[in-house]
Design a protein around this nucleic acid. Structure first.
Lengths: 205, 205
DNA sequence: TGCTACACTGACCAACGAGTCATTGGGCTG
DNA sequence: CAGCCCAATGACTCGTTGGTCAGTGTAGCA
């Protein structure tokens, strides 16, 4: 009997799902998709292997769910933060800053996310397609802002989609370097540095 | 008996090695490290599996050798092309252009190279360390040019290493997008576009 | 208190693939 | 031409792991 909009089963499913996803994120981040074992995830989640298969039909499905969940959370945060900024420069700054800060809080997720770029070369199929979709949704946030900037003449009239890709790439690159421990130093400094470079690069004058 | 500087054995080893590496590059590029099988590589190379183990002691060793070989070739090309350019702007343009063009000729290698960035998260050890070394050797080529530009005042006085990383990242990003088929269009256009953005971003004025 | 439903368990299985090694055969030497 | 050497072979071993399913225990109900 459904009470308060949720049956007992729904509540349970939600709880287990969250538990498993959280463990999966940790294990996949630490070992990568192939080196991670389903047993390992089950142990980290504190359940038996069979239980995982009650909620996800395969190892890949678990991986994919963890990935999607993280991307969703990031996207929401980006929309919120960019929406809060008033100027074009502010929105672009916000994109870079939000993404860079989010990572410090969610290193595990980002390791999965970025390693998926590498893996994407190997799976030319369904998952790959869906991953691209999610990635480009982010790029589109930037494209909108760029369009506005060009209209206002604060930004030179350059190819929007290519420019959005470049901004994404720089941010992604900086984050990768940090995750690999190849660059340290204060995040906030890095944010300002990147924004400055970008803004000089795309701005009018 | 060594004749003309090479024994028969050396010639054979060289031949087999090249043969195997070429096949490995193809197979790893197509399937990724884990999904590729040693049997598959052997078949592609036209030899039996046992033969591979006469020349490399493990699957990883083959992978690593293929990766290193490609990085070496790219580095030589970069040095040559950048050395040929006379101005600072020319050298930076040359870095971007050489790398982007190289890819069109060596897509297989690049797929391995870039997927290694993802994999690097999982192997925090020896290989990872050596990979970083090779990556940073490339960044150093850029840093040198940046130093010169700053001295000449053609480039603003910005953090050299971070800037070098950014230029690498943009190029890498653009290449990744092409490899994944997410961006098409003429390579030469893309080179100009990226160079323009970079130069506006780092230049004085 | 007895019964049922079902979430959960973990021993088990089958497939797979890295790495081995006894055997082969072609080329070179004497 | 005999005989040896050793590169090449590929059937085999054996550890690993994704996925299964018969069995267990407990919460909730009558």
């Amino acid at each position: 009997m459904p009470v308060l909009g949720k049956t007992k089963q729904e509540v349970l499913t939600e709880f287990r799902t969250a538990e498993i996803l959280e463990a999966a994120r940790r294990v996949f981040a630490e070992r990568g998709f192939h080196e991670a074992t389903v047993d390992g995830i089950a142990e980290a989640a504190g359940v038996a292997k069979g239980t995982l298969y009650l909620y996800y039909h395969s190892k890949r499905a678990i991986y994919w769910a963890a990935l999607k969940h993280g991307i969703g959370a990031l996207h929401e945060e980006l929309e919120r933060e960019m929406g809060g900024a008033r100027t074009v420069a502010g929105k672009i700054h916000s994109f870079i800053a939000t993404k860079m800060r989010f990572i410090e809080q969610h290193r595990d997720f980002f390791k999965i996310y970025y390693s998926e770029f590498g893996n994407a070369f190997a799976h030319p199929t369904q998952v790959h397609e869906e991953f691209r979709e999610l990635y480009q949704r982010q790029a589109r946030l930037l494209e909108c802002v760029l369009r506005e900037g060009i209209r206002q003449r604060t930004i030179r009239n350059i190819r929007r989609s290519a420019t959005a890709a470049v901004i994404s790439d720089i941010t992604r690159g900086a984050i990768t370097q940090r995750l690999l421990g190849w660059s340290k130093g204060d995040v906030e400094n890095e944010i300002e540095f990147i924004f400055d470079l970008v803004w000089k690069g795309i701005g009018n004058r």
